[in-house]
Amino acid sequence: MKKILFFLIGLLLITGCTSKSTNQLNVLNWTSYIPDDVISDFEEEYNIKVNYGTYSSNEELLAKLSSSKKGTYDVVFPSDYMVSLMKEKKMLTKIDKKRFNNYENINPLFLKQEYDSKNNYSLPFLLATSVLAVNTEHIKENIEGYKDLLNKKYENDIVLIDDQRIIIGACLQVNGYDINDTNDKHLEEAKKFFLKMKPNVKAFDSDSPKTFLMTGEVNIGLLWNAEALLAQEYNPKIKIIYPKDGYALSMDNYCIVKGSKNVDNAYLFIDYLLRDDIAKRIVSEYPYIATNRNVSQMSNKKLKRILKNGSYIRNIGSNIKKYDKTWAKMK
């Protein structure tokens, strides 16, 4: 009995110590975004223990942040509209750009965006765009936009990102409305379009929609560009299409959470990710569009075109409740 008690106390001490004494950093990031070895190399280089958690949507990030105790997380990667919302709710710390050695590596094209016009709270990390991916081996028809997905032949053949803003946004765009529209009537039309498409939808998945395309489970996907590129790498018959109705741009950013207890480590970590070699490693594993100007994936001209034709998701304030409700009804 006594032995057991000692053992128990010992264990408690061990768990108590390991969670406090070491130099650490709590990172909350998207799933499939930074390769594991990039994190472990950082841990070794700086002798900082990284507690790495993941989320699958901006809403999940917001929920995790707002329900946890202050100081639980240090670095997070919200997208554009979520940066603006978190800024508004005073959830982010002001960033001192002078503390980064590698700040100059950022392509100015991505700086000073509308959601954080002076980059006081965020620095751009990666750009994602929503695209359609089509397995041309099984889908012979020409697919140009979201309307083409209504074809009855594609029953149970589509995978969608599990993200209410992107999917409702696409259903708005197909009817010619803005991706951020909050008009009740327009949302109703978007819902109707979606319900027409629903029999063709096999699954919603944000974490790894590419797997559905790779295993041949489905032949069409509405997913992030990097996921589509990875699927294409696995199966070259998969074609990537920028929908003619428009598509979503999602700029994910480095942010430091207000109340962070490891601010210095947070700066070190972001600076590390800004390095050219690290940026290269990240996009070679998860081929999103790098914001690092020394990583050349495409010309600035092409980049500008992608930015011009896509639309950012914007913070719509309390109208988000309308989206919540529409989403619950659609799924």
């Binding site: 949507s57 809403e59 999940e60 929920a63 995790k64 329900s67 599990d162 939808v201 096999k202 699954a203 919603f204 998945d205 799924k331």
Partner: peptide, 17 residues
Amino acid sequence: GGKQMIIGNLIKDQFLT
């Protein structure tokens, strides 16, 4: 496949997203 919601998912979503 993330579309077949049961009560468990509904509660989870209310708390986590």
